[in-house]
């Protein structure tokens, strides 16, 4: 049962919430909510029947499908993208490992730029309102998506969150994905640009350890440069690795803590926020 409203929804339901309106929330369960109800009675006595050489015991008629498994997500993502384009909203999908500083980056950015641009934020985390509360404190509209056990945001969650958030014409929509360098790479949300954030203490081989994420990103922000004197981190090496996976990758080095490099990032937002997608 849902521990917020007791409505009988499973703990795995996806929940949208706004700071200051703790009582009100939306369950995004849809077709996906029925899974995983098994009470661990896994007996595993059913044979794994995924054989590659089974004889002709399979009956029935063949239906050729030839369809991309993520086509539903991709269609919804395109629908989001069309909506953003029509309303001249610049949507950016921020991906990274947990703890790279995405929320701090957004806090500082919004505080510095909110006089110039309208900002709206979608926060994705498995649990808690912590990040949404931090963004709420900067005074811009924010909605939190709690994915429960989910490891990524998908286009449907964004579709629902945008309906609630209703970002204004010409605004910047920052989507902070679940901290995870693997799964979010597969799910297009309809964003204009994907931004991968990494930080100096994480090490300089991230781009080739998680190539799919770097391959699908447009900009790489390298945060916590104030820690460079204390750790073994080779800036050129990380850029070379990232270019091996994505030759046209752009880079911005910042320290959110000291503010170093932030101007370049603000210029990037100005430039990419105005360019029509």
């Amino acid at each position: 049962m849902c521990d917020t409203c007791g409505c009988g929804e499973g703990g795995e339901a996806i929940i949208l919430r706004k700071p200051g309106r703790e009582g009100a929330h939306i369950h995004l369960d849809g077709e996906h909510a029925h899974h995983h109800e098994h009470g661990h009675d896994h007996e595993h006595e059913h044979e794994h029947k995924h054989s590659h050489d089974h004889p002709q015991e399979v009956r029935g008629r063949e239906v050729v499908i030839e369809q991309n498994i993520l086509s539903k997500n991709d269609l919804l993502a395109e629908r989001n993208r069309g909506y953003f384009e029509a309303k001249k909203i610049a949507a950016f999908n921020l991906v990274s490992s947990p703890g790279s500083g995405k929320t701090s980056l957004l806090e500082r950015t919004i505080t510095a730029m909110k006089g110039k641009k309208g900002f709206y934020v979608i926060e994705g985390d498995q649990q808690t309102m912590h990040d949404a509360d931090r963004i709420h404190a900067t005074g811009v509209p924010v909605i939190q998506i709690n994915t429960g056990n989910g490891c990524h945001l998908d286009a449907r969650m964004i579709h629902e969150a945008v309906k609630e958030l209703d970002p204004g014409e010409g605004s910047v929509l920052m989507i902070e994905n679940v901290g995870n360098l693997v799964c979010p790479s597969l799910f297009d949300l309809g964003e204009r640009k994907r931004i991968v954030v990494m930080s100096v203490p994480e090490g300089d081989d991230k781009p080739i350890k998680y190539p799919t994420m770097f391959q699908s990103s447009d900009l790489c922000i390298i945060n916590k440069t104030d820690l460079l004197p204390y750790v073994d981190f080779d800036m050129e090496k990380v850029k070379n690795y990232a270019r091996q996976v994505k030759p046209e990758m752009e880079f911005i080095e910042v320290s959110v803590r000291t503010g170093e490099g932030m101007e370049q990032w603000y210029e990037w937002i100005e430039k990419n926020g105005d360019a029509l997608g």
Binding site: E62, V64, E66, Q67
Partner: peptide, 10 residues
């Protein structure tokens, strides 16, 4: 690729 190529039904 991540595709459902075909299914058999009855």
């Amino acid at each position: 690729e991540l595709r459902l190529r075909s299914i058999m039904v009855e």
